[in-house]
Design a binder for these strands. Structure first.
Lengths: 229, 229
DNA sequence: CGGGTACTTGACAATGGTCAAGTGTGGTGG
DNA sequence: CCACCACACTTGACCATTGTCAAGTACCCG
């Protein structure tokens, strides 16, 4: 719809690299198109490289033996995923599937490593990227294990609003089912919590648009105060 | 007690580096000693470098508003921690404290980055290290959100046995309280589950030593089969 | 022997998962 | 343009797992 043409130049991963290296990367990268719902890779699969999202959206997730799904992350344009086996060897530690039609760039391990040895800046960028993901994991473990669902949801909403420069209203870029998976709960539970929060006057839900009516009370909820019951 | 003198030469992080760089790192690193229970850094603290464990043991953890503790990782000799802010900027994403008297090496960010630009191998090692941690986080999220406590415990025991080359008996290198924190549960719950597993003939508990009496059934339990109730 | 820490056990409440049965709602084809 | 279908979502009822509070026991170190 807009200029989301998608280029490695938009990815944080490749910021600050000289034109020379950018074109080198482009020349070895492979463009892929996946339609909504398609599996991109499976946990345990062999990895020969990693991916960059050019357009669309991808979920990284784990499945329990009984089939429950925990979404680990949702990535959009500019994000990369699947780096772990590139640097640590072995297989993919989780599954990836397209949640929307999407366009990806596949970057083969071999070429990347070769470029990295020549261009320390690229290695530093990759380190920044993987470290940022470590930080995100830390936050996620905190949310998933130390907070209850309403707290997790409040934290998520505030975070989403922050990502949109503090907008008082956010629009989910995923289904509520996926949000439930991301928050580590069931669709039904999320539905109930959204209703309770609406009734308490904290938010206002209109489809996928959620107005934050009482950000201050949401903050209090997210940080554990029992403003809500 | 043994030759755990501790040197950067034992750390995976610094494998394969030339003597020249090893001594360069040693010359900028600072040795620290912390006694059991001491805080090493707090979440949100400013970071000027990261740490390598020479001897002893350290826990990385998060605290809930109500004071519950989720242990994210326990590190022993050869492990490094606190890298995130070095590469991604910002503050420490979690807390660190000594669970045993320990000896650490503090490696200042500035020097490390300087060395990394000259020695791509060092950057590759750091990437391997952070990627391995990403993989560990993935497993942890899976355990914490998709499995119940008995399954988590079974998976932990099997993993620990594997780390000791498949020994049929393992000895915890931490208190059961810390293990509970690592498994994301309460001390009381862990205690009960251990007993149920003993009564079911899966394990045999003698203090911190746990014999795996029926590894096959433990495997089945860890992968979700309801062998146990 | 004393004290603190680690651990156990019991009783109880509640968060949230599951099953089941709806109610929208958007998109497609007739 | 309407009807239908699939998918997203809601709501209700129920109950298992697990956290919490409380009290007590075992164990280790000095």
């Amino acid at each position: 719809m807009n200029a989301d043409k998608g280029s490695i130049r938009d990815a944080p991963l490749f910021q600050g690299l000289s034109e020379h290296y950018l074109t080198a990367i482009e020349s070895v990268a492979v463009r892929q198109v996946h339609e909504k719902g398609r599996t991109i890779f499976l946990e345990g699969g062999e990895a020969g490289g990693f991916y960059l999202v050019l357009s669309g959206q991808v979920k990284i997730f784990k499945l329990s033996p009984e089939g429950r799904e925990q979404i680990i992350h949702i990535y959009g344009p500019g994000n990369s995923f699947g780096e772990v086996p590139v640097f640590a060897g072995g297989r993919f530690p989780a599954n990836a599937a397209a949640t929307q039609d999407c366009e990806l760039l596949y970057i083969p391990r071999r070429e990347l490593v070769r470029l990295m040895k020549r261009e320390p800046e690229l290695a530093m960028n990759m380190l920044a990227e993987t470290s940022a993901k470590l930080r995100a994991f830390t936050v996620q473990i905190e949310n998933l294990t130390l907070r209850e669902i309403p707290q997790r949801l409040a934290a998520y909403l505030l975070d989403a609003s922050e990502r949109e420069n503090g907008a008082g209203e956010i629009t989910l870029d995923m289904t509520k089912g996926h949000l439930a998976g991301l928050l580590g709960t069931a669709q039904e539970t999320l539905s109930r919590v959204l209703r309770r929060m609406s009734e308490a006057g904290l938010i206002e839900v209109r489809g996928r648009t959620i107005g934050l009516k009482a950000p201050v009370r949401l903050e209090a909820l997210a940080s554990g105060d029992e403003v809500f019951r």
